[in-house]
Structures are given as structure tokens and as C-alpha cells.
């Protein structure tokens, strides 16, 4: 059996082993490959940078725990930027699992900058039925979330006293692993003219490029790469920056296997 015939029947577990090594070794031994900032991420950074201290931003956690490795670094980076610039944050979730994740993230990031819950940030909790929730917020935050996540009426929260609807906030950031930003664009941006930003899994990125070109979204932070770019912009290296070496090496391993597979295919074809 020629080497190309053997390549055809290679055990998939060998490929998994190479992939494991391609990811694990760069995590242990730092290479420090450069990360370049793309325009879509820079737009988000610039927009937040341009907000006045005390502005209000709504961050919606619209994802499950399965995609946490991609979502958490970007959430951390964006929240750090918001709190560093003294921007107030309203947290909420349109997915049940996003409730625990969002609450924990906002509290942790808020504590990092000495922010006080109720004054500098709030977490309103979860609402099902995305369309109704997003449309309802355009009329009244209080109607959709009469109480916050802890059961405190939102009118009793100092930060929420003067916030009625989208007219009182600067932008919505949807941290999501599905097409929830489409709902934000459709109902919050199109109807109420609120600015929308998406923090997405890389899988969803290509769906949203047209929305940035058309001005329906300010920008987007896509995947671990987007999070690493954001970390670079805020000059605070975190989980995403650490993972970028592993990401690049894993891609090289995969490209290597694709090349080997194609050469094997051509050689076998010639041999017949």
C-alpha cells in the first residue's frame, strides 16, 4: 500500500490527536502571534469611546452555555471598556441560560471597576418571546421588566428612575450565538432607531456583514478573534488574546491536513 493509499485510510483519531496538540501546546508555550484589528470591531470600540460618561448601554445576553468560550471573552472585553469609560450598563437576557451568565459577568466586571449595583449597573433578568420583549422595551422598560433579577421593582433602582424606553439609552449590544441581532435590528433599530451592536459567535459572522454595510448595525465583534481584537484595543490582554496562538496553530494543522488530503486524492487518481 502506497503512502497515498495509507493517507486515505488514516484513522480520524490521529487527526484529533494532532488537533489537540495544535491547540494545547500553544496554550502552554506562548508564541505571541500578532492580532490585527478589523474595521467592524474598531467601529464598535470607536462608538463606545465616543459616548459621554453616564450614558446608558443595554447589554443583552442572548446565548447558551455551550458557546461560553467564545462569548465570555468578548463580554468581558466590552464590559471592561464600558465600565472604564463610566458608562452605565443595563443587563438582560433573551435566553434562559443567559440569565446566570449575564448576571455573573456584569457583577464581576462591575466589581473590577468598583461599580455599585443599582447605581452603575443593573441586571433585569430573562424574558421569553424575543419579538414581544424587544418591542415592549420600546414602549416601557418597566412593563417588560417590572422587577429586576433580584425581585426589586425597577423604579426603586436609582439608575432606572429616568429610564423609560430606548429613547433613554445609547445603544444595544446583543451577545449571542444565533440570529437574535436580526430581531434587535428589525424591531429596535428599524422601529425605534436605537443603535445595535452584535457580539457573535464566528459561525454567525457572515450573516451580519450586510447589516453593517447598510448602517443597520454599528459594528460587530465576531468570535474569539473579535474578542482578541477588542482586548487589543482596550489594551487589556485576556482569555481571547491567550487563545489566538492556539487558534492560528490549529488552523495551520487543519490547512496541512487539507493539503495532504488533496495531494493524496490527486496521486491516487493518477495511479489508477
Amino acid at each position: 500500500m502506497s503512502i497515498w493509499e495509507k493517507a486515505k485510510t488514516i484513522d480520524r483519531r490521529i487527526i484529533f490527536l494532532f488537533m489537540f496538540l495544535g491547540v494545547a501546546l500553544p496554550l502552554l508555550i506562548r508564541i505571541g502571534l500578532p492580532v490585527s484589528v478589523t474595521n467592524d470591531v474598531k467601529k464598535v470600540y470607536d462608538y463606545i469611546e465616543g459616548l459621554e460618561p453616564g450614558s446608558i448601554v443595554l447589554v443583552s445576553y442572548d446565548h447558551d452555555t455551550g458557546t461560553l468560550p467564545e462569548m465570555l471573552p468578548m463580554s468581558d472585553a466590552i464590559l471592561r471598556h464600558l465600565f472604564r469609560n463610566n458608562i452605565k450598563v443595563i443587563g438582560m437576557a433573551l435566553r434562559a441560560e443567559g440569565t446566570g451568565i449575564g448576571r455573573q459577568n456584569i457583577r464581576r466586571s462591575g466589581a473590577e471597576f468598583g461599580k455599585i449595583e443599582g447605581e452603575d449597573f443593573v441586571f433585569l433578568g430573562f424574558r421569553p418571546e424575543i419579538t414581544a420583549a424587544i418591542l415592549g422595551l420600546g414602549t416601557s422598560f418597566e412593563r417588560v421588566f417590572p422587577k429586576d433579577d433580584e425581585g426589586i421593582p425597577i423604579r426603586e433602582l436609582p439608575m432606572m428612575k429616568d429610564i423609560n424606553n430606548y429613547g433613554d439609552i445609547e445603544m444595544v449590544i446583543s451577545i449571542t450565538d444565533d440570529d437574535t441581532p436580526v430581531y434587535w435590528v428589525n424591531y429596535a433599530n428599524a422601529r425605534f432607531k436605537v443603535k445595535v451592536v452584535a457580539g457573535l459567535t464566528a459561525v454567525m459572522a457572515t450573516t451580519f456583514f450586510p447589516f453593517i454595510d447598510s448602517g443597520q448595525m454599528v459594528g460587530m465583534v465576531a468570535g474569539l478573534k473579535g474578542a482578541a481584537e477588542y482586548e487589543k484595543l482596550i489594551e487589556k490582554r485576556g482569555r481571547a488574546g491567550r487563545g489566538m496562538d492556539a487558534q492560528s496553530i490549529a488552523h495551520l494543522v487543519m490547512i496541512g491536513f487539507i493539503i495532504i488530503g488533496n495531494i493524496a486524492f490527486i496521486m491516487r487518481k493518477r495511479g489508477k
Binding site: 488537533m19 468560550p69 467564545e70 487563545g243 487558534q247 490549529a250
Partner: peptide, 10 residues
């Protein structure tokens, strides 16, 4: 592919 590898990295 990038997303799936990101999950493995995580």
C-alpha cells in the same frame, strides 16, 4: 471552523 476551534480552546 474557527468557531469550533474556539470552543475547543475554551
Amino acid at each position: 471552523v474557527m468557531a469550533r476551534i474556539s470552543l475547543l480552546i475554551g
